[in-house]
Amino acid sequence: MASQTSTPPLSSKIALEIITQRNAPPKLTNRLLEIATSAFWDDQTFNWRYPTRHEHPAHHRHMFWRYLGNELLDPTIWVVVAYLTENSIKIPVGYSTWQRKGPGTEAAVKGRDGWLQKSERNLFALHERLNTLLFPNPSAYKPAIDLMAKVFEETENLVNQMPQFENHLHLNILVVDPAYQRRGIGEALVLWGVNKSINEGIPCALEASRAGKRVYTKCGFEEVQTCDGLHPGPGKPWQEGMHCREEGCQFGVGSFMIYEPPSLQPQTLTSLP
C-alpha cells in the first residue's frame, strides 16, 4: 500500500537511466515492482478490471512483473528509471516505458537485440503462458479487461490514421512512487520521450488519465480526443459490470494525446519588411 509518510525535500537532481534485462538486478526490479504495485493499489481502472485484487496481492504483483519482464526483453521498448540520491544512496523513485512503433522500428533498434535476448524472450513468453493457464488471476473480470483492451485498440487505430504517425514513440506506462510524487519525477520521465522524439524526428502518443493529463500538457502534449469506452452512449447500451454510470469518474474518461517535434510542425511563413 502507498506510504502516506511525508519525506523531507530532496536537494539532489533527478537522474535517468535506461535498463534492460542485462543491467537490471533483482534488487532493482523488486523495487520497481514495489513502486508500481503501491502506485496502482487503489487505482480505479484496476479496481474495475480486478475487483477482488486486494484479496490476491501476489497476483497483483505478478501482473506488473509480467509487464516489466516483457518490456525489459523487448528491443523496441526503452525502460527509463528515475533516481534521486539521498544520503549518498541512489533511490529508484519511478519509471516509464517508451515503445518505438512503425516500419522504421527494426532499423532504429538495431543492436538492441541478440540471440540470447531472443531466447530469453521466448522462454519468458512460454513461462507466462503456462503460468496463466495453471494459475489464472482469480480477481480478473474478463469483460472489463476486454473492454479496456478495445479502448486501447481504438486509439491505436486512430494513431495509424494520422499523418506523420507511421513511425512514433508510445508511452506505455508512467509510474512514480507515491512517497516521491510532486517532485518533478513524472515530468522528467515524460521529457525523456519528448527529447528522444525530437532527436529522431518522430512524434509521441499516449493515453492519459484525468490525473496524468496535467503533466503531459506541461511537457508539450496536446489532446486529440477523449477516450471513453466505459460509459453508455449512442451505440453503447448500458451493461451491468461493463459500464460506469457515474459522471466524472476518474477512470471513465481519459485523453488521447500527442506530441509533435518542431521538425514535423508546419512552418509559418512571414513576409519580409
Results as ranks from 00 to 15, higher is better:
residue 131 N to W: 13
residue 204 C to N: 08
residue 271 S to D: 13
residue 205 A to W: 04
residue 57 P to K: 08
residue 122 N to E: 12
residue 4 Q to D: 09
residue 78 W to M: 14
residue 273 P to F: 00
residue 11 S to I: 10
residue 43 D to S: 00
residue 102 G to L: 09
residue 38 S to T: 14
residue 74 D to I: 01
residue 129 R to Y: 10
residue 241 G to Q: 09
residue 217 T to M: 02
residue 162 M to A: 03
residue 144 A to K: 12
residue 114 G to M: 10
residue 122 N to P: 01
residue 267 Q to W: 10
residue 195 N to Q: 12
residue 229 G to P: 05
residue 124 F to P: 02
residue 186 G to H: 11
residue 41 W to D: 10
residue 219 C to T: 07
residue 251 F to P: 09
residue 239 Q to F: 05
residue 74 D to M: 01
residue 35 I to C: 02
residue 263 S to Y: 05
residue 204 C to M: 03
residue 124 F to V: 06
residue 70 N to C: 07
residue 129 R to K: 15
residue 137 N to M: 03
residue 156 E to W: 12
residue 203 P to S: 02
residue 83 Y to V: 02
residue 258 I to E: 01
residue 184 G to E: 04
residue 1 M to C: 06
residue 20 T to A: 02
residue 231 H to I: 03
residue 232 P to Q: 04
residue 47 N to P: 01
residue 268 T to R: 15
residue 27 K to M: 11
residue 75 P to M: 01
residue 179 A to W: 09
residue 76 T to K: 09
residue 6 S to I: 13
residue 41 W to F: 11
residue 69 G to W: 02
residue 152 F to T: 12
residue 39 A to L: 02
residue 102 G to S: 11
residue 143 P to K: 11
residue 260 E to P: 03
residue 1 M to N: 07
residue 21 Q to E: 11
residue 45 T to D: 11
residue 255 S to D: 10
residue 88 S to A: 09
residue 260 E to T: 13
residue 171 L to Y: 12
residue 77 I to Y: 06
residue 1 M to P: 07
residue 146 D to S: 10
residue 84 L to M: 08
residue 207 E to D: 09
residue 108 A to N: 03
residue 52 T to K: 07
residue 179 A to N: 05
residue 233 G to Q: 08
residue 150 K to T: 15
residue 128 E to N: 08
residue 36 A to W: 08
residue 208 A to V: 00
residue 180 Y to I: 04
residue 71 E to I: 10
residue 24 A to R: 10
residue 218 K to I: 02
residue 61 R to M: 10
residue 181 Q to S: 04
residue 11 S to F: 13
residue 76 T to V: 03
residue 21 Q to Y: 14
residue 190 V to F: 00
residue 273 P to L: 00
residue 109 V to H: 00
residue 14 I to M: 08
residue 169 L to E: 02
residue 229 G to E: 02
residue 219 C to V: 02
residue 15 A to P: 10
residue 227 C to Y: 09
residue 27 K to E: 15
residue 211 A to E: 13
residue 153 E to M: 05
residue 36 A to V: 14
residue 152 F to N: 13
residue 39 A to V: 04
residue 171 L to Q: 14
residue 57 P to L: 03
residue 255 S to I: 06
residue 242 M to Y: 14
residue 268 T to H: 12
residue 80 V to E: 00
residue 66 R to I: 09
residue 169 L to K: 05
residue 141 Y to C: 10
residue 216 Y to P: 05
residue 79 V to S: 08
residue 127 H to Y: 10
residue 58 A to K: 15
residue 270 T to S: 11
residue 255 S to M: 06
residue 74 D to C: 01
residue 54 H to S: 05
residue 66 R to F: 08
residue 234 P to A: 12
residue 113 D to H: 04
residue 209 S to A: 11
residue 252 G to C: 06
residue 78 W to H: 15
residue 98 W to Y: 01
residue 231 H to W: 03
residue 100 R to D: 08
residue 178 P to Y: 00
residue 14 I to F: 09
residue 84 L to C: 07
residue 37 T to R: 04
residue 41 W to R: 14
residue 269 L to Y: 12
residue 106 E to A: 15
residue 220 G to R: 07
residue 115 W to T: 15
residue 62 H to M: 05
residue 55 E to A: 10
residue 69 G to R: 02
residue 157 N to H: 12
residue 174 L to C: 07
residue 106 E to V: 15
residue 41 W to E: 09
residue 174 L to D: 04
residue 70 N to V: 07
residue 108 A to S: 09
residue 205 A to N: 07
